[in-house]
Design a protein around this nucleic acid. Structure first.
Length: 551
RNA sequence: GUGCCCGUAGCUCAAUGGAUAGAGCAUCAGCCUUCUAAGCUGAGGGUUACUGGUUCGAGUCCAGUCGGGCAUACCA
């Protein structure tokens, strides 16, 4: 609907000989008294034009013209807002487009021909996924879905490392447990992975090889088996909540090089060295971030000769640029917040357009169990498993709860609430609206032969009750909600919006008889229901939750 | 100490610098012989942590204070 008003406003500005680089803003006033849509353009330009905002608004209105039957009236209000009131029939006429566009409603082509990479989850295969990872996982997945609707060709990538010290320790941990199974006396070190899953892996090896591996001093079989099993479990867990990556990028590949070539890590060092941002002292190789106004330099290669995590990180992002992505989105938790500025700085120094990088950081999750809050921390070892959460509350609730608060807010996950099969639970509230429509349409098909793809959607233009108009009007917001979710990398906007749509549908359903109405009104209301179902479905698709046809 | 995020109704959270700060839960009062009551209607509930500043306009931006979280490794 913004697209409908915008050209007229620009036209009016031209007619008034106003040139401005200010963006015209159209918003939906909270109060209906202030119109269906409103623009503050006169207020914004008031100073620049040295004119009274109300006078300016009057002139602009004089220059605006709309086709018959679209805009009912325009008003100047308050300090100089221009408020637009639409014809109800025009609103409902626009709703018809939703049905016509179907699954494509809400998509746009702003990203057409562009590629995007979204990196998320990226947990090393040292153990099963924890709840803390879940939030970033779902956030990243929804962001990828959002970008897809805008026409981007999206690569969903998982970055991991199976070569570091942590993986060595993992292998050793399995080996200790295995030796226990063989009946050897071992003291399991505190520094190693304590989880039960280590024993399970050891058991797999013991079942297969009995004690044949006991004398082996080679850690490889333990590490490799652990990695395979754990990665499998991670992917299975992700699959349960509809997360599937297109590409798994192994950090280790950045350390190695083909013949006559240097490794990606080494290339970064060389390139930064050319720009004179590399220093060598205290036995280590440093990224001279102090030259950029930071307090300290950052280690890229430790005195042991091993790269610190920062170097492969930069190399990895350099690789993303080399792969030519137009948009690079990184999703990670607040504990990595200090990591990305160095990466961005390095790439900027190397001459890349770092404006392409967007970082979505999610704050941590605290679980509420029976009113008690439990903070999640992988390091303290009290993190619960994502799998157990999914067992407990289901995939849909898991996904929705992770994104129903903005990513910047510290999420409070109320397990009891997520488990409830009642209206208190927002998952059920949303899904119930969809199921209710499906049920209604089934009945309509049976009783009066109604077909959602049939004719008669134009009859919606006759609808004029408050509940009908409000619902139809809300459905038209959907594309704008997607746009703003994309702009802010914030699926939470979608959740809130869909909740509003569900609420308005329930009100409509409550107040307006559908099957029992006169045939023409009945058809009109059924089509309004079809349009609502379409918006809910499309929205659920982005959030990755199911759209049940009955409950 | 320094950097980043947060502080809004009893609780969980919304509000691209816009008009009288909104939802849900909880509380209280109503609505089913009627298409799913897994729903709807209504009521109460606020000095937006505090103090200044910027401007037509600040919950939002800036500075400071207080409180909570996360970082601040030659861990990832």
């Amino acid at each position: 609907m913004q697209e409908f008003l915008l050209p007229a406003i620009h036209q009016a500005l031209r007619a008034a000989s106003i040139n401005t680089d200010k963006q015209v803003q159209i918003e939906k006033p909270a109060d209906k008294k202030n119109g269906d849509y409103s623009t503050n353009i006169a207020l914004m330009l008031s100073r620049e034009c040295r004119r009274n905002p109300r006078d300016l608004a009057t002139e602009l209105i004089g220059h605006m013209a709309f086709p018959e039957g679209t805009v009912e009236k325009m008003e100047i209000a308050g300090p100089g807002f221009i408020n637009f009131f639409l014809e109800p029939a025009f609103i409902m006429q626009s709703v018809e487009h939703i049905i016509r566009e179907g699954n494509g409603y809400g998509s746009s082509c702003t990203g057409k021909g562009k590629t995007a990479i979204v990196e998320y989850v990226s947990a090393n295969p040292t153990g099963p996924l924890t709840i803390g990872r879940g939030r970033g996982g779902v956030l990243g997945d929804c962001i990828a879905n959002l970008l897809s609707t805008q026409g981007y060709r999206v690569t969903r990538e998982y970055y991991f490392n199976d070569a570091g010290r942590q993986m060595q320790i993992l292998g050793e941990s399995v080996r200790y447990r295995y030796l226990e199974l063989c009946g050897c006396e071992v003291s399991f070190p505190d520094t190693h992975y304590q989880g039960e899953y280590i024993r399970d892996i050891a058991e797999v090896l013991f079942m297969e090889h009995a004690d044949a591996l006991a004398d082996s001093s080679d850690n490889t079989v333990f590490k490799d088996t652990a990695e395979a099993i754990i990665f499998n479990s991670i992917r299975r867990t992700l699959e349960r909540i509809n997360i599937r990556h297109d590409s798994f990028f192994n950090e280790h590949t950045l350390y190695t090089a083909a013949e006559h070539e240097t490794s990606a890590n080494q290339q970064v060092l060389d390139l930064l060295d050319e720009k004179e941002f590399i220093g060598r002292y205290d036995g280590a190789t440093w990224f001279l971030t102090s030259k950029l106004g930071q307090e300290k330099d950052k280690v890229l290669v430790k005195s042991t000769g091993e790269p610190s995590y920062r170097l492969p990180d930069i190399a990895y992002h350099l690789d993303k640029f080399r792969r030519g992505f137009d948009l690079i989105v990184n999703v990670f938790g607040a504990d990595h917040i200090d990591e990305y500025p160095d990466v961005v700085e390095a790439l900027r120094i190397l001459g890349h357009d770092t404006g392409r990088i967007r970082v979505a950081i999610n704050q941590f999750v605290t679980m509420t169990v029976n009113g008690e809050t439990v903070k999640m921390s992988t390091r303290k070892g009290n993190a619960d498993l994502l799998d157990e959460l999914i067992d407990d509350v289901g995939a849909d609730a898991t996904r929705l709860f992770f994104i129903m608060r903005s990513k910047d807010s510290h999420l409070n996950f109320d397990i009891e609430l997520a488990k409830k099969q009642s209206k208190d639970n927002p998952v059920f509230y949303l899904q119930y609206a969809h199921a209710r429509i499906c049920s209604l349409l089934r009945m309509a098909a049976e009783e009066v032969g109604f077909r959602p793809d049939g004719t008669g959607s134009h009859l919606m233009q006759a609808l004029c009750l408050e509940e009908e108009i409000q619902l139809g009007f809300a459905l038209l917001d959907y594309p704008e909600v997607i746009r703003s979710s994309v702009r802010m990398l914030e699926p939470q906007k979608m959740v809130e919006y869909l909740h509003t749509v569900a609420e308005l549908y329930h009100k409509f359903y409550q107040e307006c008889p559908i099957l029992k109405a006169e045939p023409e009104i009945r058809t009109a209301r059924l089509f309004l229901s079809v349009a609502t179902r379409q918006v809910l479905r499309n929205g659920f698709g982005i959030l990755g939750i199911s759209a049940p046809e009955s409950m």
